[in-house]
Design a protein around this nucleic acid. Structure first.
Lengths: 233, 233
DNA sequence: TCTCCTTCGAGATCACTGCTCACGTTCATG
DNA sequence: CATGAACGTGAGCAGTGATCTCGAAGGAGA
């Protein structure tokens, strides 16, 4: 709150950053499994017990990295998508997908951290939902824009059962105001499809089939755009 | 090769089974992270070093569990799907999806083992592709049957670029002989969508949106059936 | 300025882990 | 029957996350 911070607090913030930086280095290099508090302490020239002044446990440090990773992914997607003309809804969706995939391929282990198996017993979702919904927000905005501009074609799909309609309505109010639940349900499908594909590619489940996944990815992105009713071109 | 096995070999097989069983028990109870060779040895009343006579490392034991999990999932899906009339292609697809999801929900940690982040540095895929493709085979057979019976409607989708067409053709020869690459590309999409959804549900990425995921899952399954061109009803 | 309380880092320690090795034993086979 | 491979044991190595005590340092109020 106070802009002026004591020397102690500045040192604390800096060390917290350094610990996270070193931890991220280790995760990037060798994966979340190999992250070791002791080796972080060694590299930072401090006692291993000192780390616990900054992070109460290894899992908490990992959770901090998870939040950062969500944020980094969100920023990357936002950046890529923002360079596309606002009126070209389909191109914005393509950019979103390409941005997400590209970030994932460049940050292999960090992607696994957030979209792989949940590492700790169970991590508190409260701190993660905000940064996690960042890229969801991009999709929502894109849909809202398209809906307002009346370029979204109504999709031909099975009608929603009541609970799903309610869920979709709720998501719409949070992320894409004005967009009808039918469209949002399709967006949810595209959503899971996108990350399902990226996960399959990164985790090696496409080796026997669509191994260089570029064309498959592009193809699926177009299909998903159609599923959501995005206008062509 | 010889049907008659020595007492030593019988003991070895039995112990191998017991080690795996205890390991699976631990993974089911506490997740792959907590799997400990020493505690397995304790529970089996043997020295920890003895485990290494049966599995050269912890990762090898995990790999064995992964293969078993693939097999278990494959068997479950095959079983569910086989109880559906062969001519009802869409119902077979629905059964496949429901079977996979139900298995995943019942075998949370084992699902994470195979479709979560790859645990070891890198596991040899050679031993895993056979059991992994088991449930893919079910989908392939279903498509092949539908194609032969001429009930698969040609799908309206972007035409395949050459490499993807080649990949789809190759997958078709292995898994769904006779099925054209266009259909198989759509099946690949449905494939990644299915496991993307299940992963999202199990890993908690749907909490804010489609939390009881039943209706969303069913809805997506229908959409995917349409995307593949499966006949209605 | 001086005191007192909080914060911090160091080091020892605990209870684990995966893994290796030398050692005797047990079994199967030439 | 003898010999070599397979087996189980226990000690030991190197490493881990986490806890605790203790002395040093910082910061705020008197």
């Amino acid at each position: 709150m106070n802009a002026i911070r004591t020397a102690r607090q500045r040192a604390r913030d800096e060390l917290t950053r350094e610990i996270k930086a070193e931890a991220r280095r280790q995760v990037v290099a060798e994966g979340p499994q190999r992250l070791s508090l002791r080796s972080i302490a060694r590299d930072l020239g401090m006692a291993s017990s000192a780390i616990y002044r900054y992070f109460p446990s290894r899992d908490d440090l990992l959770t901090a990295l998870i939040i950062d990773a969500y944020d980094s992914l969100g920023a990357a997607v936002e950046d890529v998508e923002s360079h596309v003309p606002r009126e070209n809804i389909r191109a914005r969706w393509q950019a979103l997908c390409a941005g997400a995939r590209s970030w994932a391929r460049q940050h292999n282990h960090e992607y696994a951290l957030i979209y792989g198996s949940p590492v700790p017993g169970y991590r508190a979702p409260e701190d993660t939902i905000a940064p996690a919904s960042r890229v969801a927000g991009v999709l929502g905005q894109l849909l809202a824009d398209g809906w307002q501009a009346e370029v979204l074609r109504p999709v031909r799909a099975p009608s929603l059962r009541p609970e799903l309609a309610e869920q979709a309505r709720h998501v719409a109010t949070v992320i894409a105001p004005g967009v009808p639940p039918e469209v949002l349900a399709q967006a949810l499908i595209a959503w899971t499809q996108l990350f399902g594909m990226v996960s399959f590619e990164l985790f090696g489940h496409l080796v026997g089939s669509a191994d260089p996944a570029d064309e498959f990815f592009d193809h699926a992105v177009e299909c998903m755009a159609d599923v959501m009713g995005l206008p062509p071109a």
